[in-house]
Design a binder for these strands. Structure first.
Lengths: 242, 242
DNA sequence: TTCCTTTTTAAACAAGCGTTTAATACAATT
DNA sequence: AATTGTATTAAACGCTTGTTTAAAAAGGAA
């Protein structure tokens, strides 16, 4: 991971460009230029543009696969498990280092899959969804058909992904500066959770009290930058580096 | 709109290809071939590939702008207004002719805007969102900050868009053939509405009774293929223990 | 040094792109 | 039938793409 290894420089440049403009809009010459290497170097190190993309995508998927260890959830009341899972996903996608290209790339692949990433993302999404469904089954009556659980899970994913997507568009969506400040990670997480809980007929837990307890768990996640002591980061600032 | 007018044939072919593969992945030669004209014909009729795209996009946006006339909403209880608005959006995006490229193209532009379509879509989305917010304001206490209304509106949009997106991915998401059958327009609309109502603390209306009344309104919308003979899902009744 | 391998580069390559050109075919009007 | 304006086409243009080539540079080991 050294800064002057050309291979790493290429990966870094490619990750940023691919995540911003997609595969086919990004040219190898552009990547090479940003990485400070000759265009031929990309084929020298990675064989082809496609191989480079798969490698970049692999790295991104790796980071996205990090999750709360199942043992941490053992024993908790189901309602809190749900909240933690929602928070895990939201933190994974809405939180963390906003300048990291890995989140953007995954989001890119979800929204418009390339043949290269389709399967990789699909399997991953399926696994995460099943984790939600399993917890939901603990709460809801056995008799409830499974598709209801999937729908609710999809609703949660939808909101997380869409709010991420929206953060770039807030300037024209919400003109009011003050309103925009309320679209930060914490607020959105609470909103999504409240939405889910209301749907399930659960009492909304006392957030403030929970948050300190949760943070003990989230400390363990390497990716976390979930701050609740500082004034919450404004999503807008966090996302668009340029 | 005659079938043998080359201009219309180009528009039709371009609409399909653009909506499937996006702007830059689609070549003018491909469009020309599918339209049965010479590649030069595209520039002859539309000036350039970009001009063709804007024209195609304009047609798509036109269809998407069709909405329930505001007079139809006058006098209805706010809860029903919301349900109608949700239904309007869901029908617009999830319903109708699935083979029509117009929905796909708009969805494409929302998910990954091109410079050409960004503003067009943005203004439209803003208008629709404000319509939701205005109705929500009738229900909720004055004191409630506006950003809550926007968040809820975004949640509704998120679910509609995501479920549309998901429909292509269901084969790997839900392996079970039977489960998949429950992801139809009616079921999803009920799910989204129930979700919204639960969040607002509203009683879920009696769907069956409402649906006949609604259809009188939806008859007026040209785009509708909303079937109410199928058994609607009583998601809320089954779930809500409160 | 010399020799051999690895890294880096400028240049060229073939293919595909959107677009232009100029010649042709068509249709209607005179 | 000749003319005029429109529609259509094959061919070519200029440019960019990803990739290859072959030569130069760099780096160690002997």
């Amino acid at each position: 991971m050294s800064r002057d290894d050309p291979k790493d420089r290429i990966l870094e440049a490619a990750g940023n460009l691919f995540s911003e403009k997609g595969f086919s809009e990004t040219t190898v010459r552009e990547i090479a230029h940003r990485a400070g290497v000759n265009a031929a170097g990309i084929n020298y190190y990675f064989g082809s543009k496609k191989h480079l993309y798969t490698e970049v995508l692999r790295q991104a998927a790796e980071e996205m696969a990090i999750q709360i260890p199942p043992e941490q959830l053992e024993g908790l009341p189901p309602a809190e498990k749900i909240r933690l899972l929602i928070r895990e996903r939201a933190t994974q996608i809405l939180g963390g280092d906003p300048s990291s290209w890995k989140k953007r790339l995954i989001h890119h692949e979800i929204m418009r899959p390339t043949p290269i990433g389709r399967e990789m993302i699909g399997q991953n999404a399926r696994k995460i969804a099943d984790r939600f469904v399993k917890v939901l089954q603990e709460i809801l009556p056995e008799s409830l058909p499974r598709h209801h659980l999937y729908k609710l899970t999809m609703s949660i994913f939808a909101q997380i992904l869409y709010f991420y997507d929206l953060s770039e568009k807030l300037p024209w969506m919400l003109l009011d500066e003050e309103d925009r400040a309320h679209f930060n990670l914490d607020a959105l997480l609470d909103h999504i959770t409240a939405n889910c809980f209301a749907f399930l007929g659960l009492e909304a837990p006392d957030w403030e009290k929970r948050i300190t307890a949760e943070n003990e768990i989230f400390e363990l996640l390497p990716n976390k930058t979930f701050s609740n002591e500082t004034e919450p980061d404004h999503l807008l600032e966090k996302i668009k580096p340029r």
